[in-house]
Design a protein around this nucleic acid. Structure first.
Length: 569
DNA sequence: TGACTGCGCGCC
DNA sequence: AGGGCGCGCAGTCA
C-alpha cells in the first residue's frame, strides 16, 4: 500500500518567462487554489501537479483555466519507460504511487485538498525550491516515498541526463497539455441535440419502446430472420445460437461476422445484416446511451490521455472515440456558433516520411492527398493501391494485395520502408523501440520470452517453434506500428496544443470540443470561424516544425465550417 | 449475483 | 491470418 498523502493535495508552480526560462523566486502562499491560478495569469506559470485528471476539474468548475502544466503521473509513465532516459533513477525504480492509475477526486474532496497546496518556483539551475509548507527540500535527492517535489526532481534529472532532453521536454509538455485539453473538453462538452438524436433513432428503429422491448423495426426484422431460418424462437443477439441456426439451414459459415454473411445467397442475409446494423446502433448509441452521456445538451466523455501504449488517447465510458458516423447529425453547434471540423490527412505516412527523412515520400505528400501523390509519382496505378500498400507497410501486412505491392513501395521509398522494417526486426529480437520524441514500447511480456526461449532450446517440438515464430512476428508487427502510430499521436498532441494556444487569443472563446486521433472539432462563434480555420492550419504547420524542424514535410488538413458534424466531409 | 471471457463491430 | 482501442451482449463459472 502506498501512503495516500503522497498523492494528495500537493502541487507546485514553476514560473517562467515568455520564452520558457524560469523566473526568479516569488513566493505565494496558496490557501485558495482558484484565486492563486487567476493571479498568476500574467507570468506564464506552469503548474506542476500530481494528476491533471484529479486537480483540474474542480478548477474548471470554479471558472479557472490553467495555461500550462506538468502532469507528474503522465510524465512519470513516459520517463520510466523511455529508452532515452534508461540510465536515470526513474528507469529502474520499482512500481510506486506514481505508477497507479488516476482516480478523480470528487469536487468536495478537492476543496479540502486545496489547503495542502505547496508553492514552488524554479530557479535558473532548475533546482526546485520548497515552500515553507513542505519544509526544506534537497534536490535532487530522492525520498524513499517520493512526494511530488521529489518526483519532480527525479523527472527533471531524468530528462537532463537523458540522451534526448529536447525531445523529451517537448513530449512531456505535449502530454501534459493534452491532459489539460482532455479535462477542458469534458468540462465544455460536445454540443449535442437530443431531439436530433431521438429523431434519427426513431426514423431508423421506430419509436422508443418500453424498457426491455425491441423497437418495432427490429421486432419486424427478427420475425423475418426467424421465418427465413425456420427457427421461431431464435434470438439473433446470441452468436452461438445464430451460428448454429445458419449452419443447420445449410449455410457454410464459420462465424456470424458481417463480411462473411455478405457473401451468402439466402433469404436471411438481407434482414439479418439490417438487424445487426440497427441492433448495434441501439445498444451502442441508443436512447439509453443518450440519457447516460448526452443528457444536458453536451456529450461529456471521459478522455484518457496516454491511455494507449502508443500514446494515443483512450476513452472510458460513452465510447467517445467510436462515435459512429450515423449519429453525428446530433452534434450541432449552438445558435450563433459553428463547428470547425479539421481532419489531418494521412498523418501516419507523412510522419513516417519525416521520421525517416525519406524525401521521395515527403514529395508525394506535397500533394493534399498523399496517396494520390504516390500514384502521380508513378509508383502504383490507383489511389486504392497506394493506400493499401502504405497502410500495409505501417501495419505489417504479409499477404494479399498489400504485400504484393511492397517491392514497388520499397524501391520508391527505401528510407521509409527501412525504418518500419527495422522497428519490426527490433521487436522480433525482443528489443524496445521508441517514437520520434522518445516514448518507448513496453518490453515483451514474460510469456513471450518464455515461448521464444522454449523454442530455441535443444529438442524443441515443431509445434512450439511455430508458435514462437508466430509470437515473434506478432510482436514485430506491434513494434513496427508503434513507432509510426506513436509519433503520429505526438504530432497530433502538438497540433492540438498549438491550436489551443492560438484559440486563447481569439475573441468569443472558441474552444476545442472533440479530438479523435487525427481530427479536432472547435466550437466557435460565427464571427470568428475564419480566424479559427487559420489557427488550425497554422497549428498543423507549427506541430510539423516542432517535431521535425526544417524537414520539408507537409501536414495537409481537410477543414470545414459546418452547423452539424455530419455535414463535414 | 457478480466477475470474467469471447465475439463482433464501432472508430482511427 | 495488418496495428491500436472501448463497449455491449451472451455465456460461463464461482
Amino acid at each position: 500500500m502506498h501512503d495516500a498523502a503522497a498523492r494528495s493535495g500537493v502541487l507546485v508552480l514553476q514560473e517562467c518567462s515568455d520564452d520558457g526560462a524560469p523566473l526568479e523566486r516569488t513566493e505565494v502562499l496558496v490557501a485558495d487554489l482558484p484565486a492563486a491560478v487567476a493571479v498568476r495569469e500574467v507570468s506564464r506559470p506552469r503548474w506542476v501537479w500530481d494528476d491533471t485528471a484529479r486537480r483540474y476539474p474542480p478548477l474548471l468548475e470554479a471558472g479557472v483555466r490553467v495555461e500550462r502544466a506538468h502532469d507528474l503521473r503522465l510524465c512519470h509513465a513516459i520517463l520510466r519507460r523511455s529508452a532515452h532516459a534508461a540510465g536515470a533513477e526513474l528507469a529502474g525504480a520499482p512500481d510506486g504511487p506514481w505508477d497507479e492509475p488516476t482516480s478523480p477526486l470528487r469536487p468536495a474532496d478537492a476543496v479540502d485538498s486545496l489547503f495542502d497546496v505547496a508553492f514552488l518556483t524554479g530557479s535558473r539551475d532548475r533546482t526546485p525550491v520548497a515552500s515553507p509548507l513542505v519544509g526544506t527540500f534537497d534536490a535532487p535527492r530522492v525520498a524513499p516515498d517520493p512526494g511530488p517535489l521529489a518526483e519532480l526532481a527525479r523527472q527533471l534529472a531524468s530528462v537532463a541526463g537523458s540522451a534526448e532532453p529536447g525531445r523529451l521536454r517537448l513530449l512531456l509538455a505535449a502530454e501534459s497539455t493534452g491532459a489539460l485539453i482532455a479535462a477542458e473538453m469534458h468540462h465544455d462538452g460536445l454540443p449535442w441535440v437530443a431531439a436530433e438524436h431521438d429523431a434519427l433513432l426513431t426514423r431508423l428503429l421506430g419509436p422508443r419502446p418500453p424498457a426491455g422491448r425491441r423497437p418495432t423495426r427490429l421486432e419486424r426484422l427478427v420475425e423475418q430472420i426467424r421465418i427465413a431460418l425456420g427457427r421461431p424462437g431464435l434470438n439473433p443477439d446470441s452468436q452461438p445460437e445464430l451460428l448454429r441456426a445458419l449452419r443447420s439451414a445449410g449455410l457454410d459459415v464459420t462465424s456470424t461476422r458481417v463480411h462473411e454473411l455478405r457473401e451468402l445467397v439466402h433469404p436471411v442475409t438481407v434482414p439479418l445484416l439490417e438487424y445487426k446494423k440497427l441492433a448495434r446502433l441501439l445498444s451502442a448509441n441508443g436512447w439509453v446511451w443518450m440519457e447516460a452521456w448526452a443528457a444536458d445538451g453536451r456529450f461529456r466523455p471521459d478522455y484518457v490521455p496516454g491511455g494507449v501504449v502508443t500514446g494515443r488517447w483512450a476513452s472510458s465510458g460513452g465510447g467517445a472515440l467510436q462515435l459512429p458516423k450515423e449519429v453525428r447529425a446530433a452534434v450541432r453547434a449552438d445558435e450563433g456558433w459553428r463547428l470547425v471540423v479539421a481532419d489531418a490527412a494521412q498523418v501516419e505516412p507523412r510522419v513516417l516520411a519525416a521520421m525517416s527523412a525519406d524525401g521521395a515520400m515527403a514529395a508525394a505528400g506535397r500533394a493534399a492527398d498523399l496517396y494520390q501523390g504516390v500514384v502521380d509519382a508513378g509508383i502504383v496505378e490507383t489511389r486504392q493501391q497506394a493506400k493499401v500498400a502504405m497502410l500495409g507497410a505501417i501495419y505489417g501486412a504479409t499477404t494479399g494485395a498489400s504485400a504484393a505491392l511492397m517491392p514497388q513501395l520499397t524501391r520508391a521509398f527505401p528510407r521509409a520502408i527501412a525504418l518500419v522494417e527495422d522497428a519490426a526486426r527490433a521487436g522480433e529480437r525482443g528489443e524496445v523501440v521508441s517514437t520520434w520524441l522518445g516514448r518507448s514500447s513496453p518490453v515483451p511480456g514474460t510469456q513471450w520470452q518464455a515461448v521464444v526461449l522454449a523454442a530455441a532450446t535443444e529438442g524443441a517440438q515443431a509445434e512450439d517453434a511455430r508458435e514462437a515464430r508466430r509470437r515473434r512476428r506478432d510482436w514485430g508487427r506491434f513494434t513496427r506500428n508503434f513507432v509510426v502510430q506513436g509519433t503520429a499521436a505526438e504530432w497530433a498532441l502538438c497540433w492540438m496544443a498549438a491550436l489551443r494556444r492560438r484559440l486563447l487569443a481569439i475573441e468569443g472563446r472558441p474552444h476545442l470540443v472533440f479530438f479523435l486521433h487525427d481530427e479536432v472539432i472547435v466550437h466557435a462563434p460565427d464571427a470568428v470561424t475564419g480566424q479559427v480555420v487559420e489557427a488550425v492550419q497554422e497549428a498543423a504547420a507549427e506541430a510539423g516544425r516542432l517535431l521535425f524542424g526544417g524537414f520539408p514535410v507537409d501536414f495537409a488538413l481537410d477543414v470545414c465550417v459546418v452547423d452539424a458534424y455530419d455535414q463535414a466531409t
